[in-house]
């Protein structure tokens, strides 16, 4: 399946579901903001757990990075996120990736930096089921 280029930001959200180190109110508010937007996004339960399994989805995500359409990773400290991808043999390029930190920033700031319109999504589309 090929991706449709567009101005919509690309977003990867980490729930950090296996620990309580990300403030719960922040990750819930970011999740809600994303869910109320009209954007496509990826959400993963826990980047650490996926990295430990060397989950191939991380390599897919890293390969799909396009500087023309930046990927926003909403997770934790950038140093840690890059290290996790590296551990999973999925090196994130320097260009085209912005890592946003739910441990240190407010939900409002994070959503603003992602640049989403926070509304309910609707309307016609082309089927985009993974190949």
């Amino acid at each position: 399946m090929s991706e449709t280029a567009g101005s919509t930001p690309r977003v990867l959200y980490c729930r950090c579901a296996y620990a309580q180190v990300v403030p719960g109110d922040v990750k819930d508010a970011v999740l809600d903001g994303l869910a109320r937007s009209s954007a496509a996004f990826e959400m993963v339960p826990d980047l650490c757990e996926m990295a430990a399994r060397r989950d191939g989805q991380l390599a897919d995500i890293a390969r799909a990075v396009d500087p023309a359409r930046p990927l926003h990773i909403v997770a934790c400290w950038p140093r840690a996120v890059r290290g996790l991808f590296h551990l999973a043999d999925a090196r994130l390029p320097d260009a085209g990736v912005e890592i946003l930190n739910m441990r240190a920033e407010s939900a409002a700031d994070l959503l603003a930096r992602v640049g989403l319109d926070v509304e309910s999504g609707s309307g016609p589309t082309t089927p985009q089921v993974p190949a």
Partner: peptide
Amino acid sequence: LDRGYAVTRAVPGGAARDDASA
């Protein structure tokens, strides 16, 4: 997510990433 499942939301304009390798 809290049960351990990753989720992709596909909407008008495309999915969030290329899934060539699935």
